[in-house]
Nucleic acid binder design. Structure first.
Lengths: 259, 259
DNA sequence: TGACACCGATGTGTGCAGACATCAAAACTC
DNA sequence: GAGTTTTGATGTCTGCACACATCGGTGTCA
């Protein structure tokens, strides 16, 4: 019978599986199974049963359950057990949850959510960066934008991806809003996912390359309106390029929780 | 010497302190102390020491530390201990972290971040709701908007606050984007915080009341552009009303994390 | 006889204490 | 200074006592 260690070695999670902690593996195991629906909403597990199934001790199970609880994936009730909560209770901003959803059937819906969020946030971040970013970040943004254009022309896909991620990261970081800045990780996920799934053209759109340069130079010049415009252009194009991946995904309307 | 139980009874956290779990109290205790800076970045604690200080057992400390770890507040290293991480590593979207920051010196900065996020997201949500929301939510939004206007005219502050929260919650929920919908909780925090701190006028701005009605009716009519405009008006006014609270707060530029 | 309130048995999470394993920092040796 | 050993903290496991929600049985009253 395979243990958590065996499962981890076949895992799709490269970086995380490096950290050889049973606790972490248990979280990955249960988290993915809940989010894929293998452990459906309302499903009840017993701590004792999880010990046997995962072949780990109580302390490991308990610590893992506590973390999943803080992510809104499960709740514990005395005399009942560990109950799987509905997706509406999951914390959609947690990077683990996002990662698990991106590698599940809900991948399209997750991408749509992320893109819509980015479309709303990045133009605002561009505006803020134009008004507030420190000089060094502005210079860096311009340099990256030019390098990005060059990489786009030369067709170096790997370098292009890295620069693309760096560009949007610096932009979000330069907004001076820590919530915006924290979306860097999610942005990186969408951008890398895009190339992994073959959604990148061999030669990036010439207009998109120029918009990146325009955005960077507007930020450098402190021209908030132009920066926002350029960012909106970029996001519109990104949305249209990716919208094909979620055409079949139904929208979910989370019920308003009232006390 | 006061125990965690005693401390909890003086706590500012009403709902949470009801749940009488040592685990939860330990998280609150450590979380608030880290975020207020009482436990500064780089500060190193030992699990054994925490047991004595909090007068709880090892398992409680360990489970609490695990949760704080998943929030990015601490990291554990063998042979070293439990190290407090810099604010740039904290998960700014976690509702606990937001709550802790709202009741700390960084309150202004947290409010600014939230308002900027809302200003970016709500107009987008209005657009999405106008295009996608189910009929029932559209009707509900219109009803709430009218009730909100009435409450504003009659000067019932309590009812006004409830309806205001309900309005924005339904709007975000109606967007069909689970990340937008999840911001409900944070929105509620900012709105309630606003009244608690005496930032609400006796009689709400007449224009703002009308914008809410306009927004609701535009969503009901499927008029995305008008819905967005109305939402932007509302957020502009909210921002200008609250901007006084963070004038002294410096912006923090989170460094871009590269692997 | 039926409805209802009470109450105790049961099972599960919660909290505790102690032991050993593991592994990286630090000290030591050469 | 490179390699090795020591050390000390977290990581993991286990047995136990307790709190308490749920369920079923019992008793009371109409």
């Amino acid at each position: 019978m395979p243990t958590l260690w065996d499962v981890a070695s076949q895992s799709q999670f490269r970086l995380e599986s490096m950290s050889t902690s049973l606790h972490h593996r248990a979280i990955e195991n249960l988290g993915t199974r809940i989010i894929t629906g293998e452990l459906p909403t309302g499903h009840i597990m017993l701590a004792e049963h999880l010990e046997e199934e995962l072949k780990v001790s109580r302390s490991v199970v308990r610590e893992a359950v506590r973390v999943l609880q803080s992510l809104g994936l499960v709740e514990t009730t005395k005399r009942v057990g560990i109950r799987v909560l509905p997706p509406s209770r999951w914390n959609p901003f947690d990077s683990q949850v996002i990662r698990w959803r991106l590698s599940s059937d809900a991948r399209g819906a997750q991408l749509r959510s992320l893109i819509e969020l980015r479309s709303a946030v990045e133009p605002a971040a561009a505006e803020l960066a134009a008004n507030n970013a420190p000089a060094q970040l502005r210079r860096e943004l311009v340099d990256i934008a030019h390098a990005l254009r060059d990489a786009g022309h030369s067709g170096d896909a790997q370098k292009f991806l890295e620069l693309d991620i760096a560009f949007h990261s610096v932009l979000l970081s330069g907004s001076g809003n820590e919530m915006f800045a924290n979306l860097m990780g999610q942005v990186a996920e969408t951008l890398t996912g895009r190339t992994v799934h073959g959604l990148m053209p061999d030669h990036p759109h010439e207009g998109a390359l120029q918009w990146h340069v325009d955005l960077a130079e507007a930020v450098a010049a402190g021209d908030a309106a132009t920066a926002r415009d350029a960012s909106e252009q970029i996001m519109r194009r990104t949305t249209s390029r990716l919208s094909g991946t979620w055409t079949d995904q139904p929208r979910v309307f989370i019920p308003v929780r009232r006390n």
